[in-house]
Design a protein around this nucleic acid. Structure first.
Length: 266
DNA sequence: ATGGCTAACAACGTTAGA
């Protein structure tokens, strides 16, 4: 049964209602996973989803920071939230959806950004990020990745050389340091996950999903990073039919600094 | 040449993002 899944770090849902509805009306994914909704669960704008056929919306929010949400046309067989690093900070949620006679497990993640200084001894945010990735790895290796599963979200790491505008200049910048890129790669491989985007886009082609708000002209300077990912288990790999990074949304009115990534399964 | 931007909060300044 065909399934289209999208991930988008929306950087606050409330000021982005215009671009979210524009995206949904144009791309109509079956499931949209959002990160950084930055609002309490009860303040999430359910109406814009319900009006468009997304009858099933699972929100894990909190005031001000982080927060994730999944809007789906298909019902959820099951929903769950996990806390990482002993913090209930709204960075994860899991749903299960029916897929023919099978079940697909979908994990939506917002990995900590990690602050400025890439040294866990002096920067507790960076230490938190590394601990979070470690805990993801051990948890996902405990049988979470058996069968049909999708792991997506803002993983806040640009793992490969062409996932950043300058590999050399970003080696000491949080999101592309070796401890992060190697850690994410270990996590991906140990779980047997396939990077659905790089499955279609050659490793030597630059590809980004995030551009800083501070650039005078984000499109012209094009100093981006690929921080947002969609991974699938080997069971689903043969069904991957295509991906799309919707770069154009970065130029829409009141944009997020991240753009959506879409995967199509047949 | 990383920061020049953007948002939330109970607040017109601080914190966070990456």
């Amino acid at each position: 049964m065909p399934l289209t899944v999208a991930t988008w770090n929306i950087n606050s849902i409330r000021p982005r209602i215009g671009i979210v509805t524009r995206f949904l009306d144009r791309y109509r994914p079956d499931i949209l996973c959002l990160q950084e909704i930055k609002c309490a669960t009860e303040l999430f704008p359910l109406g814009i989803f319900h009006e468009r056929g997304y009858a099933h919306v699972f929100v894990n929010g909190q005031p001000g920071y982080h927060g994730v949400a999944i809007a789906s046309k298909r019902p959820f067989l099951d929903t769950a939230i996990r806390s990482f690093c002993g913090k209930a900070d709204a960075r994860h949620q899991r749903v299960a959806v029916r897929d023919g006679s099978d079940t697909i497990c979908l994990h939506n993640f917002y990995v900590p950004a990690g602050g400025d200084e890439p040294d866990p001894a002096v920067n507790e945010k960076f230490a938190h990020k590394l601990a979070f990735l470690d805990e993801m790895a051990s948890w996902l290796n405990g049988g979470e990745t058996d069968g049909a599963a999708i792991l997506l979200g803002d993983l806040n790491v640009a793992p490969y050389e062409n996932d950043v505008w300058s590999h050399r200049q970003l080696l000491k910048v949080v999101s592309h340091t070796p401890v992060e890129t190697e850690g994410l790669e270990m996590l991906r491989r140990s779980g047997g996950w396939l990077d659905a985007v790089r499955h279609f886009v050659p490793a030597d082609r630059k590809l980004y999903t995030w551009w800083s708000y501070r650039a005078a002209d984000w499109n012209a300077s094009d100093r981006g990073r690929r921080l947002d990912h969609i991974w699938v288990t080997p069971t689903l790999a043969p069904r991957l039919a295509g991906i799309e990074v919707v770069r154009a949304t970065r130029g829409w009115q009141r944009p997020s600094d991240h753009v959506p990534v879409i995967a199509r399964l047949v």
